[in-house]
Simulated assay, not measured.
Amino acid sequence: MLINWKKKSGLEILAFPCNQFLGQEPGNNEEIQQTVCTRFKAEFPIFDKVDVNGKNTAPLYKYLKAEKGGLLIDAIKWNFTKFLVSPDGKVSQRYSPRTSPLQFEKDIQTLLGQASS
């Protein structure tokens, strides 16, 4: 998942489903859209399912991992790994699946130049 928060302030969440982690996204793209948008009320773009590891890694994830590798390995270890990307496309930070977006709100504000002094 790419984190771009609150579209009005210049930040938007972009979600890329992946079924490489214990089959957590088994449906087709339409089924995933239905589940995420209807059941979970997602108000952000949900893109088509991608591979984030292996020989069929989506180009976006090749770029993200090349820019911000993981702690021990660059591979995405689990769903909900998050990347904070600046408006000019530079990868600012990578966050573990367990890191809540609220935990890096200050990073988001700083990236947008909105951090309070």
Rank of each mutant, 00 (worst) to 15 (best):
L72M: 11
S9D: 12
K62Y: 00
I3H: 15
G113V: 06
G27E: 15
G113I: 07
V52T: 03
R94P: 09
D51Q: 08
A58E: 03
E25P: 00
E31V: 10
K49C: 01
Q34W: 01
G10Y: 06
K49R: 14
S9F: 14
P87A: 02
K49M: 09
S100R: 08
T57D: 02
F47I: 06
S96C: 02
F44C: 02
K49H: 10
E67T: 05
S96Q: 06
F47S: 04
D48N: 15
A66V: 01
L60Q: 06
A42Q: 10
E105G: 03
S100A: 07
D48Y: 02
Y63G: 05
D74M: 05
G69V: 05
K55R: 09
T99I: 11
T57H: 02
G10S: 10
L71S: 15
D74P: 12
K82L: 04
L84P: 02
Q34M: 09
E43P: 01
S9T: 12
V36H: 03
F21M: 07
K41N: 12
F16N: 05
A75D: 05
C18P: 04
K77M: 00
D88L: 00
F47H: 13
G54T: 02
D74F: 03
L71D: 15
G10R: 08
W78K: 01
D74E: 14
K55D: 06
K106V: 14
L72G: 00
Q20F: 07
K8N: 00
E43N: 15
T99S: 08
E43R: 15
G70P: 06
E12L: 14
F40A: 11
P101F: 04
T57A: 03
K6F: 02
N79S: 01
P97T: 08
Q34H: 12
W78I: 04
Y61P: 07
A75F: 01
R39G: 08
L84G: 01
R98E: 15
P87M: 01
D74G: 12
A58D: 14
G89T: 04
K106D: 13
K55P: 13
F104M: 00
T35H: 07
V91Q: 02
P101I: 03
I46C: 03
A75H: 04
K8C: 00
A58K: 04
I73S: 13
E25F: 00
L71P: 05
P97H: 06
F47Y: 12
F44D: 09
K68I: 06
A58M: 03
K90D: 09
E31D: 11
N53W: 00
P45S: 02
S86H: 09
L11Q: 14
R39V: 13
E30D: 09
K55E: 15
G113Y: 09
T110V: 12
S116R: 13
K90G: 07
Y63V: 05
L111D: 11
E67P: 00
L64Q: 09
A115S: 13
I13N: 11
I108W: 14
K6A: 00
N79H: 05
S100W: 05
K55H: 10
P101A: 06
L102V: 03
I46Y: 03
F83I: 04
K41C: 05
K90H: 08
N28K: 07
D74T: 15
F21T: 11
F40R: 09
T81S: 03
E43A: 10
G70T: 12
L22S: 15
C37Y: 10
V52S: 00
T35E: 06
